[in-house]
Nucleic acid binder design. Structure first.
Lengths: 348, 348
DNA sequence: TTGTACGCGTTATCAA
DNA sequence: TTGATAACGCGTACAA
């Protein structure tokens, strides 16, 4: 709102013009049962005519009840995150809420600053996917303590009570790794994200569990720590893998981008995918159907997670919410494609 | 802000505890020159100790000056849009502003509703990329009239005064088409987006201009109207093109997704890219370097456009802003890759 | 250097 | 069915 802005119409203006009290106008605008029918229509007509818009600021201040949801994520311009926000925003708007977004850019410092700003904006609730760097949660604990609902999505904290919407990372990773074993892989590499985030540790756990269940030896030199799981990093680290005396015959990557990097390396170096190297990613991004060979993956229902997180945020204030519901785990699915299929699938 | 929320600390609480007036606290917190040094430190110390957070709502109401920027786009989960928002958010936060996002999902009706909601929220300024359906602008004119700065990005309106941040679509399309001609294409098809949006009409104009300049005949049956420019649509409509008695030897697509669809069709049907069919897209999305052959494109600097739009929004209120600056056109660049390169490029 | 008093626009309470 | 009044938390003109 800049300085020389046209003065906005208020309920006071309408009241004066209609010769009624401001409180009457206020009630008429929200169809309060105690207001006469003619008064209501008269008020609404004039409101429309004068271009009246309710001042959300004043209303929120008075009622101590703001209709905005804060969203705190790492990077907006990532497929998974932008779909997540899409889900939050769509669900929020259906429920009459605005959405304020802020990105930490994976920096702890930014995350703390943004959390403070959002808190000051008196948001109704906060939806958070942590920055990679974040391992300490005072900035969020403070918000929870104040009574503002906080819902964690995907990148959740370890030791902090609070509501979560996520997938079963361990189980999903096990499913993906198992698939590679079923396809005949014996030396499977893991592209692991930053160990600071529990979701990546869980995926590692799933990977290890699948290998053990399959009776395969775990070779620590095949577990590769990634920093940002980008395409470039995937290409670079695949190259390193293939300089080992005994390179892998399969890769399970913690996201699709890094898996794409692996396929690019293989393609450029005459390594046959999936025969010499079977690859499976994580997220099922659109790119899976674009790269050649098409990339196997496991679903990570971003939009749905966003919607659920929002609904969870709105329900927390509700005392009826059962405690059991405070952890929502979504189902995931294996999507086998050419990058890992060496033999026909057993069923359908 | 839910009902049984812990009461927030106010300047009034701090004032009581320190035995000073609330106004003194208010001024101390913003380092007002008239307040004593010790008072300032005392106030700030206590504020920290009590966990005081300034109430943005109250402050905005009082000053008639909100620190939030509204963003109104079609779909958040699209590469170009999410990068645009990324740019807006980053720049806004640097300047101390929050960002409220809302998506029209390309529906005119949603766009109108969202514009009204944002307006009611007393945003400082609005950044808009229009819904495909939108051809009428009353909902935005109203906001402009009220004195709220409105900046249009990418999908801009035709006959509405207002600030714009965009690229030169006609020139860029000409450059892309010219490139195909240079590579020896003689029958070039155009993947055109919805004619309702001027950006797509401009790209068509550039395409036509390049053909004319190159002395090539314009075959209207090669100009394909797309609805949503998706991969699937690209594949489907390429198939149609190749059922023509005289199919094209080049495609200029108004975005990368549809171009990817064309390449997928070609790959599946043994059509050699680029020899039989040269393809160039628009946007230079990350997918360009992932598909095989890699997709030629022209840049569409989304993040930069977002940043500029935000800065433009903040400058509009400033009476010093020269009128000439109200249309910002960014430079674009041709990125030739394997999908269109039949001969070595003339220079580097 | 600090305090007093009012208003931003809305809504809740109490009274009429 | 409607009106008068106070209060939400903050900032500022004016007074001290």
């Amino acid at each position: 709102m800049s300085n020389k802005r046209k003065k906005q119409v208020t309920i006071y203006d309408l009241a004066t013009e209609l010769n009624v009290a401001p409180s009457t106008v206020s009630r008429a605008l929200k169809d309060h049962f105690s207001i006469g029918k003619e008064t209501i229509t008269a008020v609404k007509d004039l409101a429309r005519k004068r271009g009246y818009r309710t001042n959300t600021l004043a209303s929120s201040l008075r009622t101590q009840e703001s209709k905005t949801i804060g969203v705190l994520v790492s990077w907006i311009n990532r497929p998974f995150i932008s779909s997540l926000i899409h889900g939050v925003e769509a669900a929020a708007r259906e429920s009459g809420y605005n959405v304020i977004i802020s990105q930490s850019q994976d920096s702890y410092e930014n995350e703390v600053a943004n959390a403070k700003t959002l808190f000051s904006s008196r948001i109704h609730a906060l939806v958070v996917s942590l920055a990679v760097e974040t391992t300490q949660y005072d900035h969020l604990q403070e918000i929870i303590t104040s009574g503002t609902p906080v819902v964690f999505v995907d990148r959740v904290p370890t030791d902090l009570e609070g509501d979560r919407v996520m997938i079963d990372n361990e189980k999903t990773a096990r499913m993906a790794t198992q698939h590679l074993i079923d396809q005949g892989c014996r030396r499977i590499a893991l592209f692991r994200g930053s160990a600071q985030q529990v979701i990546y540790r869980d995926r590692e756990a799933g990977y290890r569990a699948a290998l053990e269940a399959g009776g395969l030896e775990i070779d620590e030199s095949l577990i590769i720590a990634f920093d940002r799981l980008t395409v470039e990093e995937g290409t670079r680290l695949t190259e390193q893998l293939f300089q080992l005396p005994n390179p892998p015959d399969g890769i399970f990557s913690s996201n699709d981008s890094a898996a794409v990097g692996a396929i690019k390396y293989a393609r450029a170096n005459g390594i046959d995918v999936p025969r010499q190297l079977a690859v499976i990613g994580f997220n099922d991004d659109p790119v899976c159907e674009i790269i050649e060979p098409q990339l196997s993956s496991v679903t990570h229902p971003a939009v749905e997670m966003g919607r659920l997180a929002l609904h969870q945020a709105l329900r927390i204030a509700d005392p009826e919410t059962p405690v059991a519901d405070r952890l929502v785990k979504l189902e995931t699915q294996l999507i086998p494609r050419a990058s890992s299929l060496r033999k026909p699938l057993i069923d359908g």
